[in-house]
């Protein structure tokens, strides 16, 4: 559940930016012969509605609908009082508080005469909502338009770049606030969390790989406590809908620490372009680290960050120029070393 700062600031996300995104959406509606476009949102699938409208839910679910003209509608299962709050944090959209969002949007579609409607991530949308929409309009066709949406979604505007940069800055400074001398996970992450939320993070998920000698699996503090001699801290952080991930590894072994630090410096200085794998491998080799695996994440459809390319993926949908997170695993003198950071 989101519980950090949730506010719309016109200086950060001008209404004209949202309008421009909706113009792009309407252009693909036209080129794909769609009478309307729908996106579903909840806490785990907020990205599409967040991009189209500037709004992220802290709880519950909703359906956002853009017609060829007029103000888009957002039907949500939240109460009338919460709808008033949504009105203050969603720059464009008429809020419809209703126990049945799908039905409310279906009625709007029926009134508009829509017959062919695009939708993001159709397979993942709760059947209750999709069926409610279909039930309101005889012969309505729901078309999975995720690929079409992703083409405009990857065309990143300056507002998104700035929000992502702010998220990255908060995440990196929060990493510095972690108590790296701590012997237990709780003590390691608590100051990190406080720092990030004081700096206005909308949400933050922290987990720790407590023993890099054993494996690189991250755990939450409710299932593990002790930090071994080498460990890694992972942070997923959102600032006003823009998500980033950061991972940093740490060791108490002085000799190894110097090598970890060199690898981190090489990673920080990496400016990915062209053949990413070759470039990354070379950068790490120069400091005695062997790249064992890597992957890149970017926003796609309704998911904030999804693996789009990597050493274990046969195809790549990575879009250069759009905000991305690079995740790597290296071998340093037989020790696992993990890192992740955002880049554009």
């Amino acid at each position: 559940m989101r519980r950090g700062l949730m506010a719309w600031d016109a200086a950060e996300l001008p209404i004209e930016v949202i309008q421009a995104r909706q113009v792009k959406l309407r252009s693909i509606m036209k080129s794909h012969r769609l009478d309307a476009f729908i996106a579903y949102t909840n806490i785990s699938h907020p990205a599409a509605v967040s991009w189209i409208s500037g709004f992220t839910p802290y709880w519950s679910e909703g359906v956002y609908c853009v017609m060829p003209e007029g103000t888009p509608a957002f039907a949500t299962a939240l109460s009338k009082r919460v709808a008033e709050w949504i009105g203050t944090v969603m720059p464009i959209g008429e809020v419809i508080p209703t126990p049945a969002p799908g039905t409310a949007i279906g009625k709007r579609l029926a009134a508009s005469g829509a017959r062919r409607v695009g939708i993001v991530d159709l397979d993942d949308v709760p059947a209750r909502q999709a069926r409610a929409i279909l039930a309101e309009v005889e012969g309505l066709e729901l078309v999975d338009s995720t690929d079409a949406f992703n083409t405009i979604r990857c065309d990143v505007d300056n507002a998104e770049r700035a929000l992502t940069a702010r998220a990255a800055a908060i995440a990196l400074s929060a990493m510095q606030a972690a108590d790296w001398k701590a012997v237990c996970m709780q003590a390691l992450i608590a100051p990190c969390e406080v720092h990030a939320r004081r700096a206005a993070a909308e949400d933050i998920f922290l987990s720790v790989a407590p023993n890099l000698a054993a494996n690189g699996r991250f755990q939450r503090t409710d299932t593990a406590t002790t930090l071994e001699s080498a460990f890694a801290l992972r942070m997923s952080l959102a600032y006003k809908g823009a998500w980033v991930r950061v991972i940093q590894s740490h060791t108490r072994d002085a000799l190894l620490a110097a090598k970890f630090a060199s690898a981190q410096t090489a990673f920080n200085e990496l400016m990915p372009s062209g053949d990413l794998e070759a470039q990354t491998r070379k950068a790490f080799e120069a400091v005695g680290a062997k790249l064992t695996s890597w992957f890149i994440e970017q926003p796609r459809g309704s998911s904030p960050l999804v693996a789009v390319a990597g050493s274990s993926m046969s195809t790549s949908t990575y879009r250069a120029g759009a905000p991305a997170t690079l995740n790597v695993e290296c071998d340093i003198d037989g020790w696992r070393w993990l890192a992740s950071r955002p880049f554009a």
């Binding site: 989101r2 700062l5 949730m6 506010a7 802290y58 009082r81 919460v82 709050w85 944090v89 206005a200």
Partner: peptide, 8 residues
């Protein structure tokens, strides 16, 4: 009129 996430 109610509680919500923090808004600043």
């Amino acid at each position: 009129r109610g509680m919500a996430p923090p808004g600043g």
